[in-house]
């Protein structure tokens, strides 16, 4: 009996992602416009945002996900920071065209002009927070879906260079206020990295100093 229940549970666990995928309903043109306007009004009211994040990396060769945690900071319109605290301290700060990485107590500054992948990730995150996803251009195919609890935006890079690294980005927005809940990046390698944002606070005391590069 227990064995049968376990098999049923495993079968459901395997099938549920497919089921939830098919549960997505494509938004109509007017629904997309309404969502865009909701996203825009939220972004216009958001000068800064701070949230806890949990990063989960899934790889075919690993039994479980690799989990790391930290604090995410955003300041309009091009300042983003992922400050990892678990399992190690690692800071990734993007300010305009510059990326600063703090690892093992050492600082490294990278020009995003030379890093097209990180530049695109920066643009997409910023566009999500700025509410102008529709204007990221023809470099992406963007589709909007309703998943009952909110809106799911699926972004597929069209350029060959980017799509060999990132095959798809899925952003989950909360229905009530267009708050970003999850960001999932599917890679050309087959790995999937998901960022889950919780405890979000907007317009707190974030200054440019929090995103200092030099």
């Amino acid at each position: 009996m227990i064995r049968a229940a376990l098999i049923l549970f495993l079968a459901l666990a395997t099938v549920s992602p497919l089921w939830s995928q098919s549960d997505l309903k494509k938004l109509s043109g007017s629904e997309v416009t309404a969502f865009d306007s909701k996203l825009k009004s939220r972004s216009q009211a958001t000068e800064t945002l701070i949230a806890d994040f949990r990063q989960e990396k899934s790889m075919e060769m690993l039994k479980n996900k690799m989990v790391s945690k930290g604090v995410f900071k955003y300041k309009r319109e091009d300042k983003i920071a992922f400050l990892y605290s678990q399992p190690m301290v690692y800071h990734m700060i993007i300010n305009g065209q510059k990326l600063r990485i703090l690892s093992n107590g050492k600082n490294q500054i990278i020009d995003l002009k030379n890093n097209p992948v990180m530049r695109e990730v920066r643009s997409l995150i910023a566009a999500s927070f700025l509410g102008n996803l529709s204007q990221v251009g023809t470099t992406y195919k963007i589709s909007y879906f309703d998943n009952k609890s909110g809106v799911v935006v699926v972004v597929v890079p069209q350029s060959k260079q980017l799509s060999s690294v990132i095959t798809r980005i899925t952003i989950n927005f909360k229905g009530s206020n267009a708050e970003i809940e999850r960001l999932k990046i599917e890679e050309g390698s087959g790995s999937v990295t998901e960022y889950i944002f919780t405890n979000q606070r907007i317009n707190t005391d974030l200054t440019d100093e929090d995103f200092r590069i030099n």
């Binding site: 990063q55 992922f82 990734m92 992948v117 890679e187 790995s191 990295t193």
Partner: peptide, 9 residues
Amino acid sequence: VMTSVFGMT
């Protein structure tokens, strides 16, 4: 497998 901390392989 070599990946970045941010997740990219």
